[in-house]
């Protein structure tokens, strides 16, 4: 039994990455095993916990439910790509530190990517909207209190940084 492999090219955090993968390789495993980008974590491998969430062409998806071959020709943003261009913490990441929005940190990358995409859609959420925005990701440590705060703080930081850039 030999597995057939497929050539794929995926733009990961702005860089075109080529790979040869078996058809069944998950996108998460391609990133982790083939590219060594281990920031994307697998918590349940059945699409519920959201730890493996990344952005596929800007849209949050569960990378445990997507095959690497189906990302061929698409753009992926992982938690590693949520930093500022200079490598400083991005607004969502910074907000998580400021608000103590993480404890063990395992689910955190999925929250960072989810919130990054959400704030593009809704730059100024209310507390209730913030809670709803993270309502598809599981965290076992924080009780979500400080993650909700971090969403609001991230929105402020993002606006501040954007207006400073103008």
């Amino acid at each position: 039994m030999t597995e057939q492999v497929h050539q794929i090219t995926v733009t990961v955090n702005g860089v075109a990455r080529r790979g040869e993968v078996p058809a069944r390789r998950l996108l998460a495993d391609f990133l982790r095993m083939d590219l060594g980008l281990t920031g994307t974590h697998l918590g349940c491998e059945h699409g519920v916990c959201g730890a493996c969430t990344l952005l596929l062409d800007g849209v949050p998806v569960r990378s445990c439910l997507i095959l690497a071959v189906s990302a061929d020709g698409h753009a992926v943003t992982t938690v590693e790509g949520c930093c500022e261009a200079g490598g400083e913490l991005g607004p969502v990441q910074q907000a998580f530190q400021d608000c103590h929005g993480l404890q063990c940190g395992f689910c955190t990358p999925g929250f960072i990517t989810t919130i990054t995409a959400y704030l593009e859609e809704n730059p100024k959420p209310t507390e209730e909207e913030a809670r709803e925005a993270i309502g598809g990701n599981l965290c076992r440590c924080t009780g979500y209190q400080n993650i909700v705060k971090a969403v609001l703080r991230a929105a402020d930081l993002k606006r501040e940084r954007e207006s400073a850039d103008e």
């Binding site: 982790r32 980008l37 281990t38 920031g39 994307t40 974590h41 697998l42 992982t78 938690v79 590693e80 930093c83 913490l89 990441q93 910074q94 998580f96 530190q97 400021d98 103590h100 993480l102 940190g105 395992f106 955190t108 990358p109 960072i112």
Partner: peptide, 17 residues
């Protein structure tokens, strides 16, 4: 604020897998 956070937030944590 926690010293360990920036590493974990960048995706630079090192969990078993």
């Amino acid at each position: 604020v926690r010293k360990e956070d920036p590493r974990l937030l960048r995706g630079d944590g090192r969990y078993l897998d």
